[in-house]
Design a protein around this nucleic acid. Structure first.
Lengths: 178, 178
DNA sequence: TTTGGCATGTAATCCGTTACATGATTAG
DNA sequence: CTAATCATGTAACGGATTACATGCCAAA
């Protein structure tokens, strides 16, 4: 059945902080955790329905909004499911970095083609790095707020990863250029 | 149809270095590029059939082997497809790091639970780091061999990423411990 | 008034994993 | 002899993306 869908838990985690609509969840994913997680809106709605059917969340109409908004709330069973999942070790997803696959097969094209790809990749990672550092700076101003403790940690993870990626790009570009 | 399947190109790239069986390809993936790419054997065989049907590879029985081995060779059309793909920019796959999702929702469990997960994650990354450094060392002995130039680059990428991951783990563990 | 953002959902499709099924060969 | 590895494949399933379809509300 639903053995490994981690979308369920992403949703449950978000709802554990308070009631939200599907649209809200999607926004929070893209605005706060996009650097390590993603959800497509076309998947979110069906999974929310299944979670409702399973009694892990409840659905109600938002009275305060003039729009047709469905607001979801996590149930006690939902919290239990979330906590159980948090206790299980994380299952590592095998990575698929297409940029490195192209590099690995680099002998079958010109080095300049590869360099162009890496340059583009570097720009993207640098852009991301700047964004994350911006968030980190804002969070520093907030002081030792326990509410943002875990957000801080994920931001830091993204910064480490982005810096490593940029450093590798520079190394690779130097190698390909010389 | 087969718009975005990168498995095709992983196969074509491997076959561009020489004839191989499906089993060979799987072995090469797990032994050399597992740190940034993966393929399941159950997917490899059907895709090889489709590539044969499309005329990008040819299939023949291996006469030299006492076993029932099917050997695939890349065709001119296959090489063209590979080169075309190498010219296209890499499509970034949105990441899904479950470990960070758990950290993000860390407020809903005990810090010690999180720390245990991170410790396990750290061990895995450190193990991987050691392995990659071992390969890097072997490759250094080979000198400036152009054949291993691109392999070297992917190994280096893995080392950068693993080091960054380990560094973050230490930072996170210090934070959670204190 | 028209554009963009809010908001929800379905359908088609696909990409890929896991488990299952089978059998030959080689090394200990 | 027997276990591990070589070797190929199919079937069931599921998780997720993209495109499609619809419509309201607010701001310019």
């Amino acid at each position: 059945m639903d053995g490994s869908s981690r979308t369920r838990f992403a949703i449950l985690g978000m709802l554990a902080e308070g009631p939200r609509s599907g649209y809200d969840i999607k926004r929070e994913v893209t605005e706060r955790i996009a650097h390590f997680w993603n959800e497509s809106i076309g998947n979110l709605y069906p999974v929310l329905q299944r979670l409702t059917r399973d009694g892990l969340v409840t659905r109600s109409a938002d009275a305060k909004s003039p729009r047709a908004r469905a607001v979801y709330r996590i149930t006690a069973a939902g919290r239990r499911a979330l906590e159980d999942w948090l206790h299980e070790p994380a299952i590592p997803t095998p990575p698929r970095l297409e940029i490195l696959l192209k590099v690995y097969f680099g002998a079958h094209t010109e080095p300049a083609v590869l360099a162009a790809h890496i340059l583009e990749y570097r720009a993207e990672r640098e852009r991301q790095l700047g964004m994350l550092q911006g968030v980190q700076h804002e969070l520093r101003a907030a002081g030792p707020d326990p509410d943002v403790r875990y957000l801080r940690l994920t931001i830091s993870a993204g910064i480490h990863a982005a810096q490593a990626a940029v450093a590798w790009c520079d190394e690779a570009l130097a190698d390909l250029g010389g």
